[in-house]
């Protein structure tokens, strides 16, 4: 209904990231919001459900083609992915395919092709929903988010990003520029499993992202992120500690279940039930560890 209000919005484009930071800062100082329009796959859907506007609509800035938010590069041990990178670009990137294949796998499970062609990692991180697949995948890689504002640039570790349901430590005037992650050695095991109500066009009921480096039957690196089992993306601290603490073959199913139960607090909502999510959280974690060599 209120889509008719789209007529009232203004949209600009800024020549550079610094100029964008300045615009956002200036409006922020006046208490005005700025919408950064990347793929719009989150924002436009929100408009559809929103009541008609009362006040002057916020300014929209089209960041879809801002060069400084784009590009994928590998420098030494750091893979940097621009915030404006779409899921389709992840899928098509040779570097990502080789060094962070789990991101490719995750991207293929986002919506369907049309959403993958438009949705960006930056938008996914900005919305910071516990149901966000990209956020969970980046949590598993223990990525770092590069944000910038008129006050300067800083880095936020994934572990510090979310503070509550769709709440994050990123300030309102901070623009997500890129994510950086240290890719595991090529050929390292990874895991992505999404459980949704259908095979495409589905928001995760539960999804599990995992990356690991295994040496002599023990995980020396282990990162996971789980979708839709807590108010924030679940980083599974207890499970991580369990797995890094002993040989994979010695981990029992009971230990896994117990750890997972500590790490998740799923609820009933329109997409699934808390009980089901708990069950699937345990089952997927066992499946992941089974693939790493646990005898469960």
């Amino acid at each position: 209904m209120s889509l008719a209000d789209l007529h009232f919005f203004k949209m600009t484009r800024e020549p550079s990231l610094d100029a964008l930071c300045a615009v956002v800062a200036e409006r922020h100082a006046q208490g005005l919001a700025t919408i950064l329009y990347a793929g719009g796959t989150d924002w436009m859907v929100e408009q559809e459900m929103r009541a008609p506007l009362h006040d002057e609509p916020p300014l929209v800035v089209d960041i879809g083609r801002m060069g400084e938010l784009r590009g994928i590069s590998l420098a030494g041990d750091s893979l940097r992915i621009g915030a404006g990178t779409t899921y389709l670009e992840l899928e098509r990137s040779a570097v990502v395919q080789a060094r962070a294949p789990m991101l490719v796998r995750m991207a293929k499970d986002v919506g369907a092709v049309q959403i993958q062609a438009r949705g960006t990692l930056g938008g996914n991180l900005a919305t910071a929903s516990p149901a966000a697949d990209g956020v969970a995948a980046l949590a598993a890689y223990d990525a770092t988010i590069v944000v910038k504002s008129a006050r300067g640039e800083r880095r936020i570790a994934m572990a510090d990003l979310q503070t509550g349901y769709k709440k994050s430590t990123r300030a309102a005037d901070e623009i997500i520029v890129a994510v950086e992650l240290a890719p595991p050695p090529e050929g390292s095991p990874w895991y992505w499993r999404k459980v949704g109500a259908r095979r495409a066009q589905a928001i995760s009921k539960v999804a599990l992202a995992g990356v690991a480096v295994v040496e002599n039957g023990t995980a020396t690196r282990f990162g996971v992120g789980m979708v839709s089992v807590a108010p924030v993306t679940a980083r599974m601290a207890t499970t991580r500690a369990l797995v890094l603490g002993k040989a994979l073959a010695e981990i029992t199913a009971e230990e896994i279940d117990h750890a997972v139960d500590q790490d998740v607090t799923p609820i009933d909502d329109v997409r699934s039930t808390g009980e089901y999510r708990s069950h699937v959280a345990r089952a997927l974690t066992r499946d992941l560890l089974r693939q790493l060599g646990a005898r469960v």
Binding site: A197, R199, A200, Q201, A202, I203
Partner: peptide, 27 residues
């Protein structure tokens, strides 16, 4: 297997294509 109308106090809680789940070509 997937379609279901869910209700609360006579209101439909999933009146959208994103949560009333009809099959895609992959299903």
């Amino acid at each position: 297997v997937s379609e279901e109308i869910t209700w609360r106090d006579g209101h439909i809680t999933n009146p959208r294509m994103t949560n009333y789940i009809i099959p895609t070509s992959l299903d």
